[in-house]
Structures are given as structure tokens and as C-alpha cells.
């Protein structure tokens, strides 16, 4: 077993907060599944719920709609103290009305203190709807969850302006249940512990007269990524003269594809004829503002830099340790791009 995990199990300080809510108990995680699999944010929520639960002296309850025993077991392995399984066939495929009815009834009966939903397709639709049904509110897209021990309320961190900074907001004490949706990727995945065991309670749901009002005509599982104009792109991999030849440039294209980003170039790359003039980043070309800019074999001349200085995170791969681009990069790798880039592509696949 992993050392960190042991430490987590044994060394954790328990600050148990006195219960106050009028019968509202425990932290509930609404599992979201895609077919027969749990979506990652469900596991991440379980991880965070465990931390909160130990502080509150509460249990982590998971609720699974339309899944089976095996999937319920997974929730236990990942940290649930109990799973409520609603395996009514009407819940097999997601439809808002039956899902909302099942959860609404369950929550009205069990009175959870805190409910976590994933801010994914299903959770985002359901959580506010249930909040209204239960006479409460939901704080959405949380990337951080802590507790205000004094008033026993959740304190939520929500990314403002795409993460430029965050707003921190607490529920007022009279709000019950406290409902949030959790941003996918915000919390780490817990360890899968097959030795954990807990109860799975199958609950019957009353779906009398509840009809889905949305008819699914067809589902396309995967879409071709459409090219995004450089000035709007989130991820850009950019090639410079240092890529050496067309083969080297092809590596840059491969890396961009692996990252789901766009390809661009310096004037060096444009002059070599590897890439269109319209894809030139810099004073003589376009100005870009991506979240990630990877400069491969680009020296970082000021004319180039001024076209990408607003990138939020810059990675540079350059053979020359004195290349100016390394000084303005968040992360620099000194080395032969023809070796480093294939290694990055491989690491991404891992």
C-alpha cells in the first residue's frame, strides 16, 4: 500500500465539528456515469468528500442511478461509506425528469447536509434543478471546498474569469442542504482500495407519472476537432527554424494533435516554407493568447515574443541554453527538439 495513503489513514487530524443542522446529516456524492463507467469527476468528489467527512464527523454517502452492484462496489473502493443504488430500469439512460424525481425523493427523506455533484453534463443539469426543488441553492464549478468549522458551512472556491483569480463564498448557516457542483479535474483521484467494504442499499423509486420530456434522437460519441483560429486557440504548439527540416516540423504537428492544439510558427519556420504565413506568430503576424504555448526550436526574438507574451503558460524547447525564449518561458527544456518532442508525445499517451 502506498505510504501517502497510510499516512492519510492514520495521521489525519480529526477536527470534529458539532452538528447543528436540524437533522441534516452526512456528505452525499451523486455519482455520474457514462454507460458502465464512472466519470472521473465522481471519483475526485469521493476523494474530497472523505476529507470533509473526517472534519465533520460524517459519512460519505454515494448515490448511483441506473448502475449495477459492480459499479456500486467501485464507489466503495474509492471511498464511499455507503451506496444507495437505484437500479430501476427507467434510470438506465439519463433523462432529467426521472433522475430529478429519484434524487429529490431520496434527499427529502435522508436529509443530506452536503451534496456534491460533478460539474459534468448530468450534474450541471441536475444540481440547480434539485436545489430549487429542495428549497436551497447550489454553488457551481467549485475548484476548492473547505469548511467553516464555526458555522459548519462549506466554503467554496470558484474560478473567476477562467481562473485569473477565484471567488471564495460560504453558504449561510440556514441553507440546507448545501449543494455544490465540482469542476472536473479540481481534486485528485483517490486510491482504489479493494479491501474497503460497505453496504449497498438498493432503493426503490417511485416514478409514477414521471415522463422524460427530452427525446434523444442520436448520440455521436466523438467529434472531429475543428481547427480554431490562432487568436482564439487555447493550446498552441509553435515551430521555429530549429526544427531543422520538414520532418522536424512534422513532429510539432504531431505534438499539437496529441494535445488537441493548433500549430503555428515563427518567421523562421515560415521562411523555411514549412508553414503558411497566416500562421506566423509575432509582430508581423498574429498575436495569440493561449493557455499553453509550446515554442519548439524558436530563439525568441523580440518580434516573436511580442506576439505570444500574453500566453498564460509558456514551454520552450531549445538546444541553446542561452536562447532568449528560455528566459520568458515558465518551463524550459534545453535539448534537441527532435528527441524531446517524441518523448513528450509518448509521455502524453501514458
Amino acid at each position: 500500500m502506498d505510504l501517502d495513503y497510510l499516512q492519510m489513514l492514520m495521521g489525519e487530524e480529526e477536527v470534529v465539528v458539532e452538528e447543528k443542522g436540524e437533522g441534516y446529516r452526512n456528505i452525499w456524492v451523486v455519482a455520474e456515469r457514462a454507460g458502465d463507467e464512472l466519470v472521473p469527476v465522481t471519483l475526485e468528489m469521493l476523494n474530497q468528500a472523505r476529507q470533509l467527512a473526517s472534519t465533520l464527523g460524517a459519512y460519505v454517502m454515494a448515490v448511483l442511478l441506473g448502475g449495477d452492484e459492480a459499479l456500486a462496489q467501485e464507489l466503495i473502493y474509492y471511498g464511499a461509506d455507503k451506496v444507495f443504488l437505484c437500479d430501476d430500469p427507467a434510470l438506465k439512460d439519463y433523462a432529467l425528469e426521472p433522475y430529478a424525481k429519484a434524487l429529490g425523493d431520496l434527499f427529502a427523506e435522508k436529509m443530506p447536509e452536503i451534496v456534491l455533484f460533478g460539474a459534468a453534463d448530468v450534474g450541471s443539469e441536475l444540481a440547480p434543478r434539485l436545489a430549487r426543488r429542495l428549497g436551497t441553492i447550489v454553488l457551481t464549478n467549485c475548484t476548492g471546498l473547505t469548511l467553516d468549522a464555526a458555522q459548519r458551512t462549506l466554503v467554496c472556491t470558484m474560478p473567476a474569469y477562467g481562473g485569473e483569480y477565484s471567488e471564495v463564498v460560504a453558504f449561510s448557516p440556514e441553507v440546507h442542504p448545501q449543494m455544490v457542483t465540482v469542476r472536473p479535474g479540481a481534486f485528485g483521484r483517490p486510491y482504489r482500495d479493494e479491501y474497503r467494504s460497505a453496504e449497498v442499499e438498493t432503493v426503490a423509486v417511485d416514478l409514477d407519472g414521471v415522463q422524460p420530456r427530452v427525446k434523444v434522437l442520436n448520440v455521436v460519441a466523438q467529434v472531429e476537432r475543428e481547427p480554431v483560429p490562432l487568436d482564439k486557440a487555447r493550446i498552441i504548439v509553435s515551430a521555429g527554424r530549429g526544427m531543422g527540416d520538414a520532418e522536424g516540423f512534422a513532429l510539432v504537428e504531431k505534438l499539437a494533435a496529441a494535445l488537441g492544439g493548433e500549430v503555428a510558427g515563427s518567421r523562421g519556420a515560415v521562411d523555411e516554407g514549412w508553414i503558411d504565413e497566416e500562421k506566423q506568430v509575432g509582430m508581423g503576424g498574429v498575436t495569440v493568447r493561449p493557455d499553453l504555448y509550446i515554442a519548439c526550436g524558436i530563439s525568441g526574438a523580440i518580434q516573436h515574443y511580442l506576439g505570444m507574451e500574453e500566453a498564460k503558460f509558456v514551454v520552450a524547447v531549445n538546444a541553446d541554453e542561452n536562447a532568449p525564449i528560455l528566459k520568458v518561458a515558465d518551463v524550459g527544456i534545453v535539448g534537441d527538439a527532435k528527441e524531446v518532442i517524441p518523448a513528450i508525445i509518448e509521455a502524453l499517451g501514458a
Binding site: 441536475l126 440547480p128 436545489a131 457551481t140 464549478n141 473567476a160 471567488e167
Partner: peptide, 10 residues
């Protein structure tokens, strides 16, 4: 500004 996604379903 606040990543508030409550309004529609609510």
C-alpha cells in the same frame, strides 16, 4: 466572473 451555472436549470 463567478462561474455561476445555476440560473438555467433553477
Amino acid at each position: 466572473d463567478t462561474a455561476d451555472a445555476q440560473l438555467g436549470p433553477w
